[in-house]
């Protein structure tokens, strides 16, 4: 039997390959180095910026929608917590899959809606059960207030993912690679209206979903801030995926 197996192995080895190889390489995450950011007249010092992430799927299709990415080339099928204020690479685990070109990704941010579940499910790594949890202090001269932001970014419907079709462009040929996920919580704050938040007169101000409109019909500043953060996290300042050759 060993002789036959050896013979078969020789033939296999001598005669070709299957076109794709199994790959496994580390995925790491990094936040920002400077927790201080200026937004208008306000100086914001973030004291906490936790981001839940995973699972992450990398697809051959250009737009990783549900229909166009029924199967992935590589994936990170876990959830993890990223400290957005730590610029040093934080190990999240391993990306596994097969070699090939990656053109788009889809992933969840701390909250998933599995195909077989009727409700969304926060992951074990989700900060305070949310996708993103921010805390900090805003200062303008002598004005100052603390704030927290509890951001939930849920998949739109059952079996979907929070982020669909984010473009990437890389070909991973083997396991000699490394993926770094960068989050930029400072940039998420760029469109927040700290004046209106300060006008609420509270400290800390809790930015979250679910605030009703004000009596004059305008959007509650906390709700508006939450919406601005969601827009930044899911559209303008999405987490960035950066592949490098491993050391």
């Amino acid at each position: 039997m060993k002789i036959l197996s050896l013979f078969a192995a020789i033939i296999l080895a001598a005669c070709g390959q299957t076109g794709q190889n199994e790959v496994s390489y580390p995925i790491l995450a990094a936040g920002i180095a400077d927790a201080t950011v200026a937004v208008g007249d306000w100086t914001i010092v973030l004291t906490r910026a936790d981001v839940g992430i995973g699972p992450i799927y990398f697809c051959a299709a250009s737009g990783a929608s549900l229909d166009l990415c029924p199967h992935a080339v590589q994936e990170f099928t876990h959830d993890a917590l990223i400290d957005g204020l730590d610029p040093t690479p934080q190990s999240l685990g391993q990306v596994t899959g097969v070699s090939g070109s990656l053109r788009s990704t889809k992933y969840d941010l701390g909250i998933s809606w599995p195909l077989t579940s009727s409700n969304v499910v926060p992951s074990a790594s989700a900060p305070e059960g949310h996708s993103v949890f921010l805390a900090g202090r805003a200062t303008r001269g002598t004005d100052s207030f603390e704030f927290t932001a509890e951001i939930d970014i849920e998949p739109s419907y059952q079996g979907a993912y929070a982020i669909l079709g984010q473009r990437v462009d890389v070909a991973v040929a083997d396991s000699n690679a490394r993926l770094l996920v960068r989050v930029a919580p400072d940039q998420w704050l760029a469109r927040l209206n700290f004046d209106s938040l300060f006008a609420m007169g509270a400290s800390p101000v809790r930015i979250a979903d679910g605030y009703a409109a004000l009596e004059d019909g305008s959007v509650d500043p906390r709700q508006a801030a939450r919406n601005a953060l969601v827009l930044a996290i899911t559209n303008t300042q999405k987490p960035d995926f950066e592949w490098t050759t491993g050391e």
Binding site: G16, G19, L68
Partner: peptide, 15 residues
């Protein structure tokens, strides 16, 4: 559509 450029190398073994 979900794989616009399927991976292929010359001499790829048939599964």
């Amino acid at each position: 559509a979900d794989n616009p450029a399927p991976p292929y190398v010359s001499g790829q073994l048939l599964p």
